[in-house]
């Protein structure tokens, strides 16, 4: 069993030391020519990348150092890091950080295990399996805006579906004003997020589960492991890479959450469901303080970047070896 696991890992990881060393001995000129060719082929993509990805990031970084209402081509009123000092004294922004953390925590602790459990269930042989998979995945295909509008109706305090259903099964006591109560709005939002995104993670886990050869689980069963032990000691470890990428996507998604919140609550009531992206939009497009909004976007970018790099470096190291951590040396 242990040997199989090691082998499957080896299958993903290219053996170290082989490959590039062979080309290194081929002398200087062919190498230069090869580089030129590479550069030529890369050029169109590189230009697009610089114009559409790098330039906006740099521009946002530049604008964040100015007091600017967004009019005119470039800002002129340089104020240094004032936008950032103001940002970290702003109780709404500090609240955004806390709420973002809460969403990440709830997603990782509740949403992902739920998705995993359902994926495991749907991996069993059962009637209507394809239909269930389709049903659970469907919300992910829906646009955030449609999902948002849908749930404003579901959670409507007067004649919403949620309260009607609760009343029907005799749980009137649980009926609530869901989205219009500062103390409950985050949980309502999380319910919608879970409904919307768990299907995506479920599909990831299903795909991961199906790439595990049946021989492994069969062997465990023959060795006398019960179904929980098989899951705990065989399936779960082998799903490791899938789970790590799923957590990664989940966290990045939560940091940048915007559309769903905007449509559902607009960040309210009284900022109780506001996220960094919503605050950024408020300042950039409603208050015309583009410099300040840029500062928010820069902080968002840095948080995402630090998390992405850190996570890839320390958690996903084995899964993506050669892609990021091992740049020049890979084959």
């Amino acid at each position: 069993m242990v040997r199989t696991i090691t082998r499957s890992r080896d299958g993903v990881t290219p053996p170290r030391g082989s490959g590039p060393a062979a080309g290194g001995a081929a002398g200087r000129r062919p190498r230069v020519r090869r580089l030129t060719t590479i550069l030529l082929f890369l050029l169109p993509a590189l230009v697009l990348f610089c114009l559409l990805v790098l330039a906006p990031i740099l521009l946002a970084g530049y604008a964040s150092l100015f007091k600017w209402n967004g009019f005119g081509v470039l800002p002129t009123n340089f104020i240094g890091f004032d936008n950032f000092t103001r940002l970290f004294a702003d109780e709404i922004f500090l609240g955004d950080l806390w709420r973002g953390f809460l969403l990440i925590l709830m997603s990782v602790v509740i949403q992902l295990p739920l998705a995993l459990a359902i994926a495991m269930l749907l991996n069993q042989r059962m009637r209507g399996r394809a239909l269930y998979r389709l049903l659970f995945f469907a919300p992910y295909v829906l646009s955030e805006v449609i999902a948002g509008v849908l749930f404003t109706m579901v959670f409507s305090p007067e004649h919403g579906l949620a309260n009607s259903v609760l009343g029907f099964v005799g749980l009137d006591g649980l009926a609530s004003t869901w989205l219009s109560e500062p103390s409950t709005v985050m949980y309502s939002l999380f319910i919608v997020m879970t409904w919307k995104y768990f299907g995506f993670h479920m599909i990831l886990y299903l795909a991961g589960r199906q790439s595990i050869p049946t021989e492994v689980t069969d062997a465990a069963a023959i060795d006398g492991a019960n179904s929980w032990q098989i899951f705990r000691y065989v399936t779960l470890p082998l799903l490791g890479p899938t789970i790590r990428i799923s957590v990664f996507l989940c966290v990045i998604g939560a940091i940048q959450l915007f559309d769903l919140v905007w449509v559902l609550t607009g960040g309210g009531p009284v900022h109780a469901s506001e996220t960094m992206a919503v605050t950024m939009f408020e300042f950039g497009f409603k208050r015309f303080q583009v410099g300040y909004a840029s500062a928010i976007s820069v902080v968002m970018f840095i948080i995402s970047l630090v998390f992405a790099l850190g996570y890839q470096r320390f958690v996903m190291r084995r899964d993506i070896q050669g892609a990021v951590t091992n740049m020049g040396g890979g084959s």
């Binding site: 305090p157 004003t177 869901w178 109560e181």
Partner: peptide
Amino acid sequence: QKGFLGADYDTPS
């Protein structure tokens, strides 16, 4: 009205 903090202006509710 009930739930006014979540109410919009020109939507059905």
